[in-house]
Design a protein around this nucleic acid. Structure first.
Lengths: 105, 105
DNA sequence: ACAATTGGTAAGCAAAAACTTACCGTTAGT
DNA sequence: ACTAACGGTAAGTTTTTGCTTACCAATTGT
């Protein structure tokens, strides 16, 4: 049921930018913030949302916190999408068959 | 590049509800709106967003418009997710190998 | 031609979300 | 012990977004 939070987290453009930057590998907050059009606290807040959505993890290393992508949230999102995709196709097929029945002979 | 709009469209709970209801098959606007906690115009506005995101299609049938799920948007989202998933795993592997190199012997 | 059904659009409002500045706590180095 | 670096949190403001009411256009049936 956590695909909701993942979806909501990835909807924001800057948050997506942070997330996609992490795809290239782990990074501390400061490094993430430089190169972003917004302030460091803003990035911090985005990271919290991403973390709560299971999309990133935080690891303390001295005075800095290293953020990295967490496969968990991504996996849940994929699972939902796949299941949705399948049932949508099923409904689509059923629909087509129903229409076939409408033009008999 | 349209996975952005799909993501943003699916972030809203009521919009997701509309979308998930369409999974069971096509429906005109009025039917969708009844059974929703919001007004018909609200549903209309949501449908527009979903349509612009390539998630639903609209077909005119007399005075009513039938909405159905459009596989396009869903497909683009899946493609992005899959590609993201892969490159994230790659980065993860590369990271592990780097750490292996850190503790030689 | 007229009335009724269906639904899109506009304007305005209220709630939510993102951003900034200011501040504080923690760790590392000297 | 003092200072600097790093980053989370609070408070307040602005922007965005979702919702409602009111209105209008198009189609169908009588």
């Amino acid at each position: 049921m956590a695909y909701r939070t993942a979806l909501e987290a990835l909807a924001d453009p800057t948050r997506r930018k942070v997330f996609e930057r992490l795809r290239r590998g782990p990074s501390p907050v400061g490094r993430l913030a430089s190169g972003m059009p917004v302030s460091r606290p803003a990035v911090s807040q985005h990271l919290r949302v991403l973390k709560e959505a299971g999309l990133v993890t935080e690891e303390q290393d001295g005075t800095r916190r290293i953020y990295r992508i967490d496969p968990k949230g991504l996996g849940q999102l994929r699972a939902w999408l796949d299941q949705f995709w399948e049932s949508a196709l099923d409904a689509f097929k059923a629909e087509v068959e129903k229409e076939e029945g409408d033009k008999p002979k």
